[in-house]
Amino acid sequence: MGNEPQKQNTNLFGQAMARLGFTPLGILGLGILAILPLVPPFNQEYLIRWLIMGCMMGAAAIAFDFSGGIIAVVNFGYMAFFGLGAYASGLVALHWRLPPWFIMFAGGLSSGVLGFLVGAVTLRLRGMMIMCFTWFVGLALMGLATKMVTVTRGPRGLLCPPLYPDASNLPYFYTILVMSLVTYVVLSGIVRSHIGLAFRAIGQNMEGARTSGVNPLRYRMLNFTLSCAFAGWIGAFYAHFYTVVTPDLLSTAKTVEVLVIAYIGGRSSLWGGMVAAIPFVFGMELIRSSLIALPGLNLILYGLFLILIMLYYPGGAAQVYDLYIRNSRFHWLRKLSTTP
């Protein structure tokens, strides 16, 4: 979104928003999302839970896309880093009496450190090998979480204290909304900075980037560590929202879910993950709850959807957006969809 040439503009608010990586259309969507849980059909507790899940998946997809799309390093053990953050945060909260929002950073820190270590080993390799390696790291972490019963309570799940004492879901929703906003603003800010230029160069043409004096290993490691750290941070929110973390969270199937959302949203767009996540989660939950007699149908549809997207719109929602909204026939739509 931020690659447009800057025009002279006196609109201070618009400029500030553009600096943060938002188009007018994005702000509109954000405003709608923020008041959605107060509007009648959506103010029921279970729908707010879906919204929370959607925001969480969206934030996870943004952080995934930061390495998966921008530098083309697919972290196929992504949910292991997410789950590590959840476990770390839950364990710290159980053993020390600290405020939970502070503890959530422990989740981010632990995943970031692991991401740094894994990155130091694997990021010298090519994309496919990195993907396999992170996948195996994910499998190993899941095995550890299942086997280290004394620490993680194994498959029975680790019980974590909730973030807020009252039972309402609304504060959780605004927490995760702010967290996903922070994720987006920080990561898109990095992508638009000079570091991000190096990232994009590495993602598009490694040889060219190296010829221009970019050290791929260093930038890849920075990117990967950040992506993992954000995953752990969001994972910590998961732990304190659902209050129970099982090894199942670390499985490949969950990674695939995030990956599908990120790719449906459009790779290397960052915002695409957020846009795709909420309709996706709602669609999945609706199909699952309305077709109980046909278990697994929602997953079949989602596999089908993934294949069709890959065949016909490999760029995902971002490609559709570029084709039909940013270059729309209507002047107002074009204006809304570009940064002022």
Binding site: V256, L299, I300, L304
Partner: peptide, 16 residues
């Protein structure tokens, strides 16, 4: 990614 989708479809078709 396509093979991922295939895998999901085949597993769940079996289940269904």
């Amino acid at each position: 990614l396509i093979t991922l989708g295939l895998s999901v479809i085949l597993i769940n078709t079996h289940q269904l």
